[in-house]
Simulated assay, not measured.
Amino acid sequence: MKQHNTLTLKQFIIRSIGAYFITLVIFCLFIFKVIPGCSLLQSKLVLFLLTVLGFGLIYFEKEDRRNHLSIALNVFMPFGIYTTIAYMQLLPIPLGLVWIILALLDLIYIGFYFYKVKRRNYNSLLEKSQMVIGAASLLSLIIVLSFTLFGSSIIQSSTQVSNNTDTYMRQYDEKSLKNLHHWSKLTRKEKLNTLQTICNNERDYLGIPFRIKVGAGSGLTHSYAQYNNKSKEITFEISQLDHASSTTLLEALLHSTYHAYEYALVDSYDTMSGDYNKLLDYRTIATYKKEFATKVTNKAVNYNQINESNAKAYAAEALQDYQIKFKHTKK
């Protein structure tokens, strides 16, 4: 950190507040997650206290650090520490490695400093530790943002994502049906593996030409699961994966898989000759295309779209088939 001011006190405060609120908006939109075991209010209180601590540090230090690097550290530190606390159970390996590696580098530097330097400046050591925490915080934010922003799941199934095979009857995997009987006893990975197997079978039945991955993440505020056509992935809300029933999650899987089918129909529609894509049966696909091209934030409007109502109807009908088969499966 530079040991001189490049900003006046007024500039430093104004820019700090501006940077904080910009980061806060991005954080709330893409990263914020309730800390495991805490309520929403408790989680917000933790973030607030970390922010106060982060900004408070600059006023307990010398007044010759009013610069953009100080602003960055004081903004990144509270958000990065909170993100690490909230996501450590979901991303223990990458987040753990970031903090362990940087902490070890900091300890090595401190050891080298005490070994080499006779006239020690403890304020300088504090600066270096702040920079380490700031760097770890920034990397933590980048890691979590890469999962949440680009539609990739935090946890994925280990079951193989199969290629499409031609089937005209819905296939039922006996092991998956048995797992549905003992859903509450399964681990997250076992649940995702079961859902992936069922997804593979549904994909074959619907004739979807591309492979679909099943995973779990956070931030799905209005649904149990959602389909991302860019990544060809169905992502379940991880808290729902832990607590929702097998029936609820199975219906969400069937619903999301049908959305993948609708996107596949739109892809095929775009390759047709203009002389044929105006046929009556293809008009629904044209409606899908228009709906997918328009981002809808209003939940009520989205619920009444044709693609949504058709996916809901398919999921309800398919769920009945699974429940009939489910009843005749030995536990």
Rank of each mutant, 00 (worst) to 15 (best):
K2Y: 09
Q3D: 13
A19I: 00
Y20F: 14
Y20K: 05
C28D: 13
F30T: 13
V34T: 15
G37E: 13
C38W: 08
F48L: 14
E61W: 08
E63S: 15
R65K: 13
N67C: 06
A72F: 09
P78W: 03
L91F: 02
W99G: 02
L102C: 01
A103W: 08
D106A: 08
G111L: 06
F112L: 11
Y113V: 02
Y115W: 14
K116Q: 13
N123H: 12
K128R: 14
Q130L: 12
M131P: 00
V132Q: 02
I133S: 02
A135I: 07
L138R: 01
L139C: 07
S140M: 03
L145N: 05
T148G: 01
L149H: 03
S153D: 06
I154M: 14
S157R: 00
E174G: 10
E174T: 14
E174M: 13
N179C: 05
H181C: 08
R188A: 09
K189R: 06
E202Y: 06
I212P: 04
K213R: 10
T221S: 14
T221R: 15
H222M: 12
A225S: 09
K230D: 13
E233P: 01
A244C: 03
E251I: 04
L253R: 08
L254C: 09
T257D: 06
A264Q: 09
L265R: 09
N277A: 05
L279H: 13
D281F: 14
R283L: 13
R283V: 07
T284F: 15
K289P: 12
K289C: 07
T294S: 11
K299M: 10
A300T: 08
A300P: 00
N304G: 12
S309P: 01
K312S: 15
D321M: 11
I324M: 15
I324A: 15
F326D: 05
F326A: 04
K330R: 11
K330L: 13
